Simulated assay, not measured.
Amino acid sequence: METSRRTAPAPKPLRHNGVAYGGINVLMLWAASMEQGYNSPFWMTYRQAKELSEAQRDKDEVVRQLRDVEKQIELLLERIIDAEHASVIKAYESKIAKLEREKLLLAEKVDRIVPPKGRLEEFF
């Protein structure tokens, strides 16, 4: 007597933001998944992929700027240690305060850069 093998149903196809597809799209995407051997249930259009890529590129640029500001602050702190005149130290401290404000603004900007319609990495 032969028993039939049961397999788990394929996961419902999801948009890049985690929202499930509906209707005929489910069947079309399941068929494409099986035909191409895709394991991920996530799908997106070219435009959505481009928007996600641009958001990541923007975030990477701001993170680079943030690192540059942190390096400048470190260099100024080293100069303060070597400085002998109070007026020079005061000028360095003023510059550090300005850079710290810039650093806060950049950190907030990084947090605000969100890919359109959700974060893909939240679903993995």
Rank of each mutant, 00 (worst) to 15 (best):
M28R: 14
K90W: 08
E93S: 07
W43Q: 07
L66M: 04
V63C: 05
T45H: 07
S33P: 04
T45L: 07
K98C: 07
E51G: 02
E61P: 10
T7I: 06
P116M: 02
E93K: 11
Y38P: 06
L77A: 11
Q56D: 12
K90N: 15
I89E: 04
A10I: 01
R101D: 15
V114T: 06
K59S: 08
A10T: 02
E35C: 10
R119A: 07
K95T: 13
F124Q: 09
I113F: 01
M28Q: 12
V88Q: 12
G118H: 03
A8E: 01
V63L: 12
R57K: 15
E93R: 10
R101P: 06
R67Q: 08
S87F: 15
L52C: 10
F123T: 07
A107S: 05
V69C: 00
P41F: 01
F123Y: 10
S53L: 12
E2C: 10
A31K: 10
S94R: 15
K71H: 09
A10N: 02
E74A: 13
A83D: 09
E78D: 14
A32R: 14
F42A: 03
F124C: 05
P11A: 01
K103A: 00
G22I: 14
M44Q: 08
A20L: 02
K103N: 01
T3I: 07
V62I: 09
L27D: 14
R67D: 07
H85T: 10
V26D: 04
A31Q: 11
L105V: 08
A32S: 11
A86S: 09
E35F: 11
E2Y: 10
M44R: 07
L66R: 05
W43K: 08
L77Q: 11
T3S: 09
V69Q: 00
S4A: 14
D111Q: 09
V62G: 03
E102A: 04
L75E: 15
V110A: 00
A10Y: 03
V69M: 01
R6T: 06
K59Y: 05
V114L: 08
P115M: 01
D60P: 11
K98G: 10
H16I: 09
L120F: 11
R101W: 10
Y38L: 10
D60L: 15
S33I: 03
S40I: 04
A20W: 02
Y46E: 14
W43D: 06
I96P: 03
K50H: 12
K71R: 12
N25L: 15
R79W: 13
R5M: 05
V69P: 00
T45P: 06
L52F: 07
D82F: 15
A55K: 00
H16M: 08
K12R: 06
L104G: 10
Q72I: 01
A83I: 07
M34C: 11
L105E: 13
K90R: 13
D60R: 13
Y92P: 07
N17Q: 05
E122I: 05
E35A: 15
Q36F: 13
V63Y: 08
G118P: 03
A107F: 01
E35R: 13
E74C: 05
E122T: 10
M34G: 13
Y46R: 14
Q56V: 10
A10W: 01
T3H: 08
M44E: 08
I24M: 15
E84N: 12
H85N: 14
K12P: 01
V62K: 06
E2Q: 12
K117H: 13
E102Q: 09
D111C: 03
M34N: 11
H85P: 06
A83R: 06
L77Y: 11
I113K: 01
V19T: 11
